[in-house]
Design a binder for these strands. Sequence first.
DNA 1: GTCTATAAAGTGATAGAC
DNA 2: GTCTATCACTTTATAGAC
Lengths: 198, 198
Amino acid sequence: MAGLMAIHGIDDSPRGRLLSAAAHLFRDKGFDRTTVRDIAASVGIQSGSIFHHFKTKEDILYAVMEEVIHFNTERLRQAVVAHSTGQEQLRALIRAELQSIVGDTAEAMTVMVTEWRCLSEDKQARALKLRGIYEQLWLDVLTRLHKEGVFTTDPFIMRRLLTGMTGWAPNWFDREGPLSLDDLADIILARVIGEAER
Amino acid sequence: MAGLMAIHGIDDSPRGRLLSAAAHLFRDKGFDRTTVRDIAASVGIQSGSIFHHFKTKEDILYAVMEEVIHFNTERLRQAVVAHSTGQEQLRALIRAELQSIVGDTAEAMTVMVTEWRCLSEDKQARALKLRGIYEQLWLDVLTRLHKEGVFTTDPFIMRRLLTGMTGWAPNWFDREGPLSLDDLADIILARVIGEAER
DNA sequence: GTCTATAAAGTGATAGAC
DNA sequence: GTCTATCACTTTATAGAC
């Protein structure tokens, strides 16, 4: 029910269902411990039939990552253009990334972080180019705030600290708990702009 | 050369060499993609000989984690007792965790984070108890600072943000680069106590 | 586009000699 | 404590019928 549904909508294409199922299994058990039999079984076909849709098991992993990066890069872009001040943009970026990472695309995003090295070097390089676009959106906003004197830490380092904070959230954040994603976004935002309020 | 050498010293016991080699390979290729043949070859023995020292491949993974937790819990404890004020203790904790995670025990620590789910549930539970002691050292210091009004965010959440920031460091921090671990510790510390200086 | 059947290769672990 | 040899099993991927 979660997975890549947000990307494909209610996508009943075999490819869409396979990617959703794969994202779910890869997140639960990891890429290596998930067999093509597992994936096939969870969409109700036989293992051999998988290879009509994807050439290799690794291609499935790459497809999961590619789609989730594209989808979330677009979400990040929307977050930037929806606001005018740097601080508003940064808050929107944090909120959007949290949504990606513990919200509607949580499974695929987690897979991208944790199963990265299961990709061959070629595919890692291709995925890295896509991630570069995503990261540039962050760096543009952070660099602007840095120039405005909102914080003094190097923007590249600040981005890495932010990546750590949001990226670890799936390991503890409880969507049913008392803390909302908006709350968490504000708490993380304060780690950045706290400096400005000294 | 790194690995668990710090723990075992110049430990030439077969077990020590096996654990160091395993930590290195697990970090490089992941637990599942590392074969017992790989581990055996890297210490110069045959694959069957491994099982004289460890009952299963998973036991090797658990031993790596157990040793690195024990070692780094002790390091954390030293960091606390070496200082008297809460802020000094927190800085020492951050510095110690960075040392664990990108310094002398980097390989084993990374393995603990990334290969956690490769442990059976039994062993996960056992390792979790050990990690609980480690985490309590953090929470004691953070709770003290919170009560002193040094920061307002919930100490549990603050610890999780810190875990994310330090835990992500292996993915970008360059020990040969211009930024020292002391510098990074100060930057991370400012994410916590920045609030106090408003 | 899915099925069945199977090839081809690699895996963790064991047994017994030395 | 290490070796050799091998068992029992699982894996990805393919081939061809339907």
